[in-house]
Write a protein that binds this DNA or RNA. Structure first.
Length: 819
DNA sequence: TCAGATGTTATTTTT
DNA sequence: TAACATCTGA
């Protein structure tokens, strides 16, 4: 369009309160089909705008239309826009949708995650403060490895430090913009533990600096430090970005908040000269979020950022989007009811115009496998009914829950795909290969080098490694240089030869990516190929007699394919670009919408996605809410939000399931229904098998086939109304888990559930079995007890049945009797 | 130095 | 269960 090529200097004035009556002429098509609140969010012009967007209220639509409007009206060049999303996938989608609205790709727009944007800035400016532009990004596993070394070196484990404690604390501090020095200033050195932690923090920071590396948290915090230390650098970006938009604002942490603050400041020289620039000083800021969907407090997200937005940015306009365009009313009612149990929140009710839709289906399985079988069966039914597999998703709280699901899915021949989990890039062999690349790209990266030093086995052991490290330090040379001079270490001839060979290989590969090389940098795939061949890494794997190594070799081949693909998509992509991209991929980023498979993912990864049918599995105490969250202040409330996020992902069908027993680390434990289940009004749920009914003849194999009227569902579920408590039929009582960590959970509801469930569930109480006893099982028939393991409620009988062979049974609840 | 054995321990969510 | 650490003997 021709207007886009001649931006007007004068902003188009749109009266926000004037509605659409006399709106901007260009705006009309961008406003079509939007409700009044959405329109206002698109059209409002001011320094600060907060869009409180309930789940499914069309916020992406609003954001994209807003950006397109700014560009189309000539108020902004694409390059003046910075939009921050939570994942790369969301960024790509937003870019595409804006491009679609504009009818062309808007070049120069920054639409990316916090982390990617910061990497971009840091690569440009790294030389300002002692890093080189070829810095490496350490992912969490790398950080862990580094901390592990440090704890060992400093013998911090004698203070009871664990790797996860130290990494978590460092991460937390960095998210609050503390560094080792500033923390040391406030630390209490009389406490030996704290003194030791400071040591660890110092050593960790020094190691990163020496390695020319940033960890995830650094990417944000160091950018803030950079802006603060070098105002002229900050000013460059303040001048450039006139419109900043941040999605999922409720999940920003303090560092991210500070970054936004820095970026929205008015460029200083403007203020000094008293000039009112046409942009009106600082950049305009639009944030979108929903405090009910804040689920990342554990990683430093500070809900106050959104709650106190109006105080932070005086004069900010707030727009509320409550109309939901995604789900049926039944699903929304369930979501509303659940979330209303979180006190301390602004009341907000999602509503829809599409009607009630189907009831929520509930199911209680005998075991995790039983539950998985139910999920698989229902998916098969949905598919037969015409629903595509990729419109179906299965959510769970922890990654370990995938095991049972996968087993059953494979057996049922359901096409599925697991997002996140043990990611491709977390596999040891892939990390090895990537370490080769990192060692080439960044010669200071000691962690990467250490990783490959003896992979594959070259006879370079810990002793040699220490010698090399010491030599490098004494002579103040890089690790690589130390390797080149290995002869001076007077090690054995074999070891010396191995070191020299590896050094030679790395040097050779470095030449391939030298920008001044004739013909430019070699493609990543070529570099990797050379490294893998000459190091004999793949060959060693193939020669191994461990059958898993063959799969590992194939994974490395797969990585090679990935690099080729990368080269195809980014003809100018450098090794550094590749490493960056790989470090910053999110679990959802490799979600392929057209894959034709069912998607399995954690509730956390599910945020921002939506599906026609959603299965929420493992809705049990200790899993959702997770046991680990019980101690945290605000833990149960955050877990409730997680449940809420899960519910609101569903468009048409919602299935909620749990199991009565759950296998965890080889053991089987009794599971109790989640407290959140009761918060869903009973009339919204149709229980195919409610927690109360599950005992009846339930077994792993049979539970799915029996006929079920479902008419009992309401009754057995109705423990809340049925037990005649004083709460009446009104809203569920909140405060049940109000955050003051009651050890066994909410007093009243919990006991009601417990009584109710154990009242109907088979409970063998203190039935004692000893080896030699004969028993009869409802499904397996007669058998003989071989041994009894475990204690109390977790006692397990190992039984050989005449008909079906050996089984392990949880004595407390197995449908058995002694003969 | 390394392979194998044996013992131990922890299992939330993720850019 | 499985990943991991530590130990042992070659």
């Amino acid at each position: 369009m021709s207007d886009t090529t001649t931006p007007r200097l004068q902003p188009v004035v749109v009266d926000p309160s004037g509605g659409s009556a006399g709106g901007a002429p260009e705006g009309d098509e961008l406003l079509a089909g939007l409700n009044p609140e959405q329109r206002e969010a698109v059209v409002y012009r001011g320094q600060a705008l907060l869009i409180v967007a309930g789940a499914g209220s069309g916020k992406t639509r609003v954001l994209t239309h807003r950006i397109a409007g700014l560009i189309k009206s000539g108020e902004a060049w694409p390059s003046q826009i910075l939009a921050i999303t939570f994942t790369n996938k969301a960024a790509a989608e937003m870019r595409e949708r804006v491009g679609h609205l504009l009818g062309q790709v808007a070049e120069g727009m920054w639409i990316s995650t916090f982390h990617s944007a910061c990497v971009r800035i840091l690569r440009r400016e790294a030389e300002n403060f002692g890093f080189t532009k070829s810095f490496t990004i350490y992912d969490s596993a790398d950080s862990r490895a580094l901390v592990k070394r440090i704890i060992k070196d400093l013998q911090a484990d004698t203070f009871g430090f664990t790797v996860s404690q130290v990494t978590a604390k460092i991460s937390k501090l960095k998210n609050e913009l503390a560094d080792a020095d500033s923390y040391a200033r406030t630390a209490n050195f009389n406490d030996p533990q704290e003194a030791m932690f400071v040591e660890c923090f110092r050593a960790y920071s020094r190691a990163l600096r020496e390695a020319n590396a940033f960890d995830f948290d650094d990417l944000i915090s160091q950018t803030v430090f950079l802006f603060r230390a070098f105002p002229q650098v900050a000013e460059k970006y303040q001048r450039r970005f006139r419109h900043i938009l941040v999605d999922e604002y409720q999940d920003t942490n303090h560092a991210q908040y500070s970054l936004i603050r820095e970026l929205t400041k008015a460029p200083e020289s403007n203020e000094l000269s008293g000039l009112a620039s046409f942009g009106g000083g600082g950049a305009s800021l639009t944030v979108v979020g929903d405090s009910d969907q804040s689920i990342y407090a554990f990683r430093g997200a500070d809900i106050r950022n959104i709650v106190e937005f109006e105080r932070d940015f005086p004069g900010a306009r707030v727009v509320l989007l409550e109309q939901n365009y995604r789900s049926t009313q039944n699903i929304l009612s369930a979501a509303n009811a659940v979330i209303s149990n979180n006190f301390d929140r602004k009341d907000k009710k999602l509503w829809t115009a599409v009607g009630d839709g189907e009831k929520i289906i509930g199911f209680t399985g005998y075991s995790g496998h039983d539950e998985a079988q139910f999920v698989a069966d229902e998916i098969a039914k949905l598919h037969e009914g015409g629903m595509a597999y990729n419109d179906i998703a299965v959510f769970y709280r922890t990654n370990s829950q995938t095991r049972a699901l996968e087993e059953i899915f494979i057996r049922s021949a359901l096409p599925y795909r697991v997002l996140g989990g043990t990611k491709f890039y977390e596999r040891a062999e892939i990390k090895d290969a990537m370490a080769y690349l990192s060692a080439v790209a960044n010669p200071f990266d000691g962690l990467a080098l250490r990783r490959i030093l003896n992979t594959p086995k070259r006879g370079i052991g810990p002793a040699t490694e220490t010698a090399l490290a010491g030599f490098a330090e004494r002579n103040e040379i890089s690790y690589r240089e130390a390797m080149r001079r290995a002869k001076e270490l007077s090690l054995g001839p074999k070891v010396t030869g191995a070191i020299l060979q590896l050094a030679g290989l790395l040097d050779e590969a470095s030449e391939l990516v030298d920008p001044s090389r004739v013909g430019g940098e070699a493609p990543v795939s070529e570099v990797l190929q050379v490294l893998m061949e000459r190091s004999a890494y793949v060959a060693t794997l193939r020669a191994s007699r461990d059958p898993q190594d063959e799969a590992r070799a194939e994974n490395v081949e797969e990585l090679l394919a990935v690099t080729k693909e990368f080269n195809r998509n980014n003809p100018d992509g450098t090794l550094l670009d590749f490493l960056t991209e790989v470090s910053l991929v999110a679990a959802v980023d490799d979600l392929d919408d057209s894959s034709g498979t069912v998607s399995l993912m954690t509730l956390h990864t599910a945020k921002g996605l939506e599906y026609d049918a959603v299965f929420l599995t493992g809705v049990e105490e200790d899993l959702l809410p997770h046991r680990m969250s019980a101690g945290e202040p605000g833990g149960p409330a955050e877990e409730r939000r997680l449940f809420y996020v899960g519910i609101t992902r569903a468009r048409k069908r919602l299935f909620i399931s749990l199991a009565m027993t759950r296998a965890q680390f080889g053991e089987t434990a009794v599971a109790m229904p989640s407290r959140y289940l009761q918060e869903i009004p009973a009339e919204l749920v149709e229980w195919i098998q409610s927690p109360g009914m599950a005992s009846r003849g339930g077994s792993e194999t049979r539970a799915l086939n029996g006929s079920r009227g479902g008419s009992y569902g309401g009754v057995s579920y109705g423990s809340r109304s049925g037990s005649g408590s004083s709460s009446g039929s009104g809203s569920p009582r909140f405060g049940a888990d109000g955050g003051y960590g009651l050890p066994p959970g909410p007093p009243r509801p919990k006991t009601e559930w417990a009584n109710r469930v154990t009242g109907q569930v088979r409970d063998n109480g203190d039935l004692t079995l000893v080896p030699g006893d004969r028993i009869k099982h409802a499904d397996f028939g007669e058998g003989r007890v071989n041994q009894v393991t475990g204690e109390g409620a977790k006692r397990v009988a190992h039984v050989t049945f005449e008909a079906v062979g050996a089984k392990k049974l949880l004595i407390k609840i197995a449908p058995i009797e002694k003969l």
